[in-house]
Design a protein around this nucleic acid. Structure first.
Length: 153
DNA sequence: GCCAACGTTGGC
DNA sequence: GCCAACGTTGGC
């Protein structure tokens, strides 16, 4: 079992949209490192922290899980899509993604500001300066701490 | 909206 | 294969 953090801009694809869709392919990732995490390291059932980036405030807002094996990101082949990539072909697709399934929203969002100030969380990747990876591995202890804070008492 | 930090591209 | 230029991410 692995743990992940996946970023999405709130007005692009929010936790509420995932809640409504229940399950969605995580298309649009155009970074090789992030793709490799999905393609090579994610397993069905892996737990995912859903993070709103560029948001007010930027925060972990929900919980999701990996719901499929990696598959071709079709938006790369779609000329009309803003994610279209001419280098990707049906025969040799460059970009892959997994499906992500909604689990829950956090009662209390865990903000980036809080993460940076929390002794247990401050060394999370997402808190590192200049860290732009949209998919990041998360340590179990960090994951558990976020859930503890997010579900609240 | 600004801009630092970073990944990618392309000329050489 | 180096590295400058460029485009993007994302916090602020």
């Amino acid at each position: 079992m692995n743990y992940w953090l996946m970023k999405s801009e709130e007005d692009e694809y929010s936790i509420d949209m995932l809640k409504k869709d229940k399950r969605a392919p995580w298309f649009g990732v155009r970074n090789f490192q992030a793709r490799n995490f999905m393609r090579d390291d994610m397993k069905i059932g892996d737990k995912v922290l859903f993070y709103h980036s560029n948001a007010n405030p930027s925060a972990v807002v929900g919980l999701a899980k990996v719901a499929s094996d990696p598959h071709t990101d079709k938006t790369a082949l779609d000329k009309k899509s803003k994610y279209s990539d001419v280098r990707s072909t049906k025969e040799k697709p460059i970009w892959e993604c997994v499906d992500v399934e909604f689990v829950s929203k956090l009662n209390n969002v865990v903000t980036l500001e809080y993460i940076k100030g929390d002794a247990e969380l401050s060394n999370m990747l997402v808190a590192k300066r200049g860290q732009r990876l949209s998919i990041q591995p998360v340590e179990k202890s960090h994951f558990d701490r976020i859930i503890e804070l997010g579900t609240g008492k």
